[in-house]
Design a protein around this nucleic acid. Structure first.
Lengths: 193, 193
DNA sequence: AAAATATGTCAACATCACTGACATAAATTC
DNA sequence: GAATTTATGTCAGTGATGTTGACATATTTT
């Protein structure tokens, strides 16, 4: 990404070359520095996520899997006994989208199902040994990336980041996230917020 | 996502139901609390990004556009005069993927091109008035989300979050991000790191 | 004049998402 | 006990987004 300096405004296509601040000024009085800062933050978030998924995708390629497989195997691994309905709520995709991916993972013995003991309609999902192995392999680069970043900050700063990410989640979804993560003993010292 | 409590381990499929800590213990001695925490952080990051894209997607639907269009229009809007090659480096997708989306945006007059004044091979990209309008509409929910979150923290904490996101970016990509953002006057008080 | 660069385009393909309908089995409610 | 709801699975069809690899054009650089 060798980004060259953007050329100066040129009269020919002046209407299109108005910069962000001027443009937004038309309807916002003047774009506050804050809004400009937010746009850059949004970009940092995009870049961070872009790189966050990159390494995993490479590993998945070797299995003929995609990012959807990664997500499924991650959550089933981290929350063994998850139901299909839980996974749908977590991933926010449709049943059909999940079904295809799940079917492949089950057929290829990365994930197995077990009938719910209380409610026999439920198919509780678990990773197999093979699935555990892949889950760990996929998690490794992401864990490393977060660890490398986090280790540069103090414990209290790390807590702050957790809180920051939590608050970026839609209000209406936060309780679900808490309920999920509580299964692994998270948010023990009081839920953020 | 009404996540039910995961049922207890059951002898029948014991090998598959071993929980994360035990499983990782096999090869990692014992999974450190840190690694467990990282997995939850990874999930928070996923949830935050999931919700971050949600509202924009709804708006895009009404135009018959997808998330790819959003990304293109965002970056062209925020960095007027961007070259195609720059965009490829930012989005990290192939030329063909970009071409399809870009073609639509140009045909429908959201984006226009201008021959580079120095290098006439270059096609500098700009948003049209119509494109500016859409860009702002799409940015709004994301700006609001970040603003709502950020406003709950102090200025120095906000700086910390910027730094955190920046450090999540691959080391090898950070300079490119700095160069890009510098065009909008970012990282003025010394690049993070 | 030759090589490298920036862009655009083609065909073919894979993944992942969508909608809407329908089926089964089991649990819950009346 | 019958009717409804719930959890899951499955079908057919579609669209968006990504991929690879090859090739064309214009322009700049060597």
């Amino acid at each position: 990404m060798p980004v060259k300096k953007v050329p100066m405004i040129n009269e020919e296509i002046n209407t299109n070359e108005t910069n962000l601040i001027e443009t937004l000024g038309e309807e916002n009085h003047s774009m506050s520095l804050t809004q400009e800062n937010m746009l850059s933050l949004i970009e940092l978030f995009f870049f961070a996520y872009r790189d966050f998924t990159e390494e995993g995708d490479e590993i998945l390629d070797t299995f003929g899997f995609g990012r959807a497989h990664h997500r499924v195997i991650h959550f089933v691994h981290h929350y063994p006994g998850l139901r299909v309905a839980d996974l749908l709520g977590i991933l926010k995709i449709t049943k059909q989208s999940l079904a295809r991916v799940l079917k492949q993972l089950i057929e290829q013995d990365f994930i197995c199902q077990k009938e719910g003991s209380k409610d026999r309609r439920e198919r509780l999902l678990y990773t197999t040994d093979k699935g555990n192995k892949l889950a760990k392999e996929l998690a490794e680069p992401q864990i490393n990336r977060f660890e490398a970043t986090m280790s540069q900050f103090s414990k209290s700063e790390q807590k702050l980041f957790e809180n920051f990410l939590f608050k970026l989640i839609r209000q209406s979804n936060r309780q679900d996230v808490i309920s999920l993560m509580a299964q692994n003993g998270h948010f023990p010292d009081g839920k953020p917020d």
